[in-house]
């Protein structure tokens, strides 16, 4: 087949190119630029090559933050995914109660991140907070600003409170799309409740569950506002996650070079993990379809 040669179509792509350039490519390249140079202000730059990267990879501070970040993401995934499924399974299927449930579930998702942080900060205070006061009245020592374990527990509880709804809503949508005939067939086949979950509900929820896990992983790996408002990264460095550390470095210490290198590595790690996850998901899907 003869193809028409018409290069003028490229002009139509220009608006998008400009938009993308200004929204991501140029800012990104600025960061790349910073990461290879040192500056003492006044627009004086010195080329340092990979020095910042080398320094950061050797720094205990970065690895500690990275470790905390991984631990945090793993814990919230381990809690939010099963809990979300459980909530979705026990939500009413239809009628006015289903609608009320959906609205209530969406509420935490609509609250601005820094407000979530503030809510929990007040909630956990031992003098006026409902949670903090109740716990201390019960004789349980609890202080999220002094005790590392309490701080972690509060940050995790906050994230679970904020985001389990998302997992639950996605799973609920997946569950509602299962035709009734599957449940009827399972009853006829005398399947147990567990079998119904294992062989009907879980396989049918697979797609949405993957999306939920991916979203929750990315979001939790980049978490900043809520723990910053709640604990400010403390006590000490115990709740200093990667993004909190990055902001400290960039804006607190004004170490632009290392901070830029940090940002890029942070970005690449998220990209890499998401890519691996996505690939595994897609191949697993294909295998299933082919076998």
């Amino acid at each position: 087949m003869e193809k028409t040669v018409n290069q003028r179509a490229w002009f139509l792509v220009i608006p998008v190119l400009i938009l993308v350039a200004f929204s991501s490519i140029i800012p990104m390249m600025t960061v790349v630029n910073y990461s290879f140079q040192d500056t003492f202000g006044g627009n004086n730059f010195f080329w340092v090559g990979l020095e910042w990267y080398r320094e950061l990879l050797r720094s205990e501070r970065l690895w500690d933050a990275f470790g905390r970040q991984l631990l945090f993401s793993s814990i919230i995934l381990l809690i939010e995914v099963p809990l979300g499924i459980l909530v979705a399974l026990s939500m009413p299927k239809k009628g006015i109660s289903a609608s009320i449930c959906l609205v209530l579930m969406s509420l935490p998702l609509l609250i601005p991140y820094n407000v979530v942080g503030t809510i929990w900060q007040v909630f956990g205070r031992a003098d006026i907070g409902l949670l903090g006061r109740t716990l201390s009245d019960l004789g349980i020592s609890y202080n999220y600003s002094q005790n590392a374990f309490d701080a972690w527990a509060t940050v995790i509880a906050m994230d679970v409170w904020h985001w389990t709804s998302l997992v639950a809503l996605l799973c609920y949508a997946g569950l509602r799309s299962i035709p009734n005939a599957y449940y009827q067939a399972a009853m006829i086949d005398q399947a147990s409740r567990w079998s119904v979950f294992r062989f009907i509900e879980l396989p049918k929820m697979r797609g949405v569950l993957m999306i939920a896990i991916l979203l929750r992983f990315m979001d939790s790996f980049m978490i900043y506002t809520e723990p910053f408002v709640l604990t400010g990264g403390g006590p000490g460095n115990t709740t200093t996650f990667l993004s909190i550390d990055l902001v400290k470095m960039a804006l607190g210490q004004f170490d632009l070079g290392p901070a830029a290198a940090f940002s890029l590595m942070y970005f690449l790690v998220i990209l890499l993990i998401s890519y691996v996850f996505y690939t595994v998901m897609i191949t697993a899907d294909k295998d299933e379809a082919q076998s």
Binding site: P179, A181, Y182, Q184, A185, F199, I200, P203, K204, E288
Partner: peptide, 8 residues
């Protein structure tokens, strides 16, 4: 309409 357990 057919009802099968997909993963089996």
């Amino acid at each position: 309409f057919p009802v099968v357990y997909d993963t089996m």
